[in-house]
Amino acid sequence: MTMFSPIRLRAAALLAGFALALSGCFMSPGKFTSELALTGPDSFTFSYEGEIFFLGLSKLAQMGAASEETFTPEACFNDETYEERECTKDELDSQRAEWDAGAAERAEKAKKDAQAMKAMMGGIDPADPKASEELVRLLERQKGWNRVVHKGDGVFEVSFATQSTLGHDFMFPLIEGFPPLNPFVQMILRDSGQARINAPGFAAQNGDNPMAGMMGGMGSLAGLAAMGAADGAGEGNAEAPAIPGVPMMEGTFTIRTAPGMRILANNTDEGPSATTNGGEELRWTISPRTTQAPTALIVTGG
């Protein structure tokens, strides 16, 4: 009989996750340093220095698309011992016939996926060899993106900084034409001068992402990379990600408050510490093992 080996099942699960990620045009942090400072009752600054990975512009996405067009026989196993064996000609012919029968459906799906991806990337076609250059131009014309460099394979080195008032909510990254599906950091203002700050993009596994349930709790590309690293660790390779092309998330996220502000809640390990200007600081160290998204509730007085 034909069966999936555990390794093939794991690979299939990862590919399914990639397909979901592609449908959401996912972005993920790589190595980074980020800070949100509440500088006054009506002002704040935010910065992000480091890597951002765009799955749609990586070789991994191209490999996923190519795999849909290549016939690969499934493994065959002994009905009694369940040990893998060589497939018979009839079994291979049957698999091939089933594959050929789905050609038209796969072609139509690929066409729709390509159109959807282009629409979700602000009109940028990921299949265009100059897509990365176009994304760089798109980001550089937006306020706050002071430096954007494509390092290759969908990884961009960026320097972002902005300052504004606490008269509106805030989210990063916010890219023209892109749907705000997976923010790294968001600040939601409440009545009575309170600010709720969440960083769902700085956790490998969390329930804040709407795709998390469909991905078995892996709500981000970082989650997929972490799952791959865990698989690699089990095979004596603890340092290298098992999923090539997906950078490991590693960095720090800091929230600073001005004097007089009160931190009502947070999920840091050690709680707030005093700063030299009389305010307080919250700091999270982010890694592929981070399972809780940083969060804090602060009374700004605004």
Rank of each mutant, 00 (worst) to 15 (best):
D90C: 09
M1G: 10
M121Y: 11
W284A: 08
G271R: 13
L224R: 00
S220N: 03
S287C: 11
T72K: 10
I255A: 05
L297K: 06
A199Y: 03
L15Q: 12
A293T: 08
Q95P: 03
P272V: 06
L36C: 12
N206R: 09
G193N: 07
L15K: 03
D231C: 08
A225E: 05
G40F: 10
M249G: 02
F18Y: 06
G144W: 01
K143C: 04
T72P: 01
G64T: 11
A37C: 14
L138M: 13
I286K: 00
F26G: 04
L174G: 06
G123W: 09
E68S: 14
R141Y: 12
T291C: 07
N182L: 04
A240S: 15
A127L: 15
F46G: 08
S164R: 07
E133N: 14
R190A: 14
V185I: 13
Q95V: 02
A61H: 02
Q186G: 15
T165R: 14
I52V: 15
A37H: 13
N237C: 13
L181A: 07
T300Q: 09
Q163W: 04
I263H: 03
G177Q: 11
G193W: 01
G152S: 11
A37F: 04
D169R: 03
G279I: 00
N206L: 10
A21S: 15
A107S: 14
A75Y: 01
L221Y: 03
N237Q: 10
R10Q: 12
A13I: 07
T33L: 08
F253C: 01
V158S: 00
L15W: 02
R283E: 01
T290G: 04
V185E: 07
